[in-house]
Design a protein around this nucleic acid. Structure first.
Lengths: 134, 134
DNA sequence: CAATGTGTACTAGTCTATCGATACACTATA
DNA sequence: TATAGTGTATCGATAGACTAGTACACATTG
């Protein structure tokens, strides 16, 4: 597992790290039980402070993506039954929707707004309120 | 046009303002040429600094939602052909997609991620890159 | 021109997010 | 028990976001 950061993107380093771990999990590059690179190793490789890596790992733990074991390391956590499969299906749905939306000639911002609006609506109606898998 | 802010929501006041103006435009409560409430009036009504209102209005101008006329006021701008109608159609598409996704049991975060991923894909392939209508 | 209403520009304070330095505590291994 | 490898905790520096105070410039009306 190797990470690549864009120092000048304006996106916080710890978020970039989180993003890459999540992506690796979703694509299957990282599986349940796999150990992630050491905090110190990542920090060294990417020439950054260990604390920043800690932040990424801790948030990922809080989201239920991985588990930190004091003195041992960081490990990918079971995400609960064919979650990866579900996410793949979801992608298909989203993809077709996005395609149709682009045909309507919406800008990316408008598209995102429409999405967020719906999400807010849905949140109000249903019980998906709890964000993340905590 | 009356605005309502949530001081303790953690969401920046100027963003809340922007949100409400956009929503009013999308629902038709505000139409092309309509004058928005004065910067000072909004600031007074909501007990906040005029500069914060300015920020909201300026960003909306930058996004092409309204137009600021020095000495005259702020006015809703034509958004180009039946844009409102298009946006309404888009909403329907998004709504059905979101509903299906929720049935899959995705959390809000996962849903958002899937959406952003697709958006990034689409951006790479097509020419919708330019965000906002500027 | 005067008066009033409008947006604009400049400056500064405060708070938070982000990242870093460093020392501590747990675990595994021999 | 010693040692090396791992995550943890606490504090500080810095930059940027957000909001505010105040004075300026333009437009409209009479």
């Amino acid at each position: 597992m190797i990470f690549r950061l864009n120092q000048s993107s304006g996106i916080p380093l710890y978020l970039q790290l989180m993003e890459q771990v999540k992506h690796a999990v979703e694509t299957g590059a990282l599986r349940e039980g796999d150990q992630l690179p050491t905090i110190r190793k990542v920090a060294e490789d990417l020439v950054m402070n260990p604390n920043t890596v800690v932040r990424a790992y801790r948030e990922l733990e809080h989201e239920g993506v991985l588990e930190l074991k004091h003195g041992s390391g960081a490990f990918i956590k079971e995400s609960g039954g064919g979650r990866a499969g579900v996410i793949r299906k979801a992608r298909a749905v989203v993809q077709s929707a996005v395609e149709r939306l682009m045909l309507l000639g919406l800008t990316e911002d408008e598209l995102r707004r429409a999405f967020e609006n719906e999400l807010a609506q849905a949140r109000a109606k249903t019980a998906i309120g709890k964000s993340s898998r905590g």
